[in-house]
């Protein structure tokens, strides 16, 4: 394991484990996050795990980058990465018609049929590597190699809430309507971010996600259940 600790300005220290998207690096970043969180280090404001690193935000009036690095390095030096994934979600996704505006193009570019794209996308179990871009926006991987595509050259201005998208080696769900440059291949009715809930995000880094194809009529049913407060999505708890 490589371990690099560097200050990033006078309010953050970056703990880097490597420079790629992989389950091993993600396990290290998420394990480090849990281990440091338990230590309750003075001056640490919050921590943000990413694909390959952990950002430790600190208050320069309470501690310093040098002091934090001295404290953190020995804790993480012999870190035994564990698999922090404990929750597995199965999420309904409608891959049909207007909910999948880029699906045909994706099939054409990859040389697959539409059904094959859906099958490849929905048979995989994904890991939430990290969150960013928007509140509750998850970076999920790894996408089947056959579906790897570059981002669109021209982002569109209005991606509907709940849209399932793919780009590079990743897939994601837009928690809000937003601009976006990924390929849009489906929609989930599940609410991913709700400020009235604590925590407000349904998902968190380290979760597992599997998508379950549903028809348009089933999608309508679920929207109605959600509106009536009768739809409850519970994760399967995985024993480590």
């Amino acid at each position: 394991m490589s371990l690099n600790l560097n200050a990033s300005g006078d309010t953050a220290v970056v703990v880097e484990f490597g420079n790629e998207v992989s389950a091993d690096l993600s396990n290290l970043a998420l394990s480090a996050d849990l281990v440091l969180g338990q230590k309750k280090i003075s001056g640490v404001v919050e921590t943000v795990p990413t694909f390959r690193s952990l950002m430790v935000h600190y208050d320069p009036l309470i501690t310093s980058a040098a002091e934090l690095i001295t404290t953190i390095e020995p804790i993480l030096k012999n870190l035994k990465a564990f698999n922090p994934q404990t929750r597995k979600w199965t999420m309904p996704v409608c891959y049909e018609d207007e909910h999948a505006p880029d699906l045909k193009d994706v099939a054409k570019t990859t040389g697959l049929s539409v059904d094959q794209v859906i099958e490849l996308h929905s048979k995989q179990t994904y890991r939430v590597y990290m969150m960013g871009f928007l509140p509750g926006f998850t970076y999920l991987g790894d996408l089947a190699a056959e579906l790897h595509l570059p981002r669109k050259s021209h982002p569109i201005t209005r991606v509907p809430k709940g849209t399932i998208s793919i780009a590079t080696t990743l897939t994601s769900i837009y928690p809000f309507e937003s601009p976006g440059g990924w390929h849009l291949i489906g929609i989930t009715p599940v609410i991913l971010f709700d400020i009235k809930k604590n925590p407000p995000a349904l998902l968190r880094p380290g979760d597992q996600i599997k998508f379950e194809p549903v028809s348009k009529s089933k999608l309508t049913d679920i929207y109605q259940q959600i509106a009536a407060g009768e739809f409850l999505l519970e994760p399967e708890i995985i024993q480590p």
């Binding site: 990033s8 300005g9 309010t11 953050a12 970056v14 880097e16 420079n19 790629e20 998207v21 943000v48 990413t50 694909f51 390959r52 690193s53 952990l54 950002m55 935000h57 990290m130 960013g132 970076y139």
Partner: peptide, 11 residues
């Protein structure tokens, strides 16, 4: 392009 990492205010 880098593999995304955290951003601090002022970065």
């Amino acid at each position: 392009n880098i593999v995304s990492d955290g951003t601090a205010l002022g970065a």
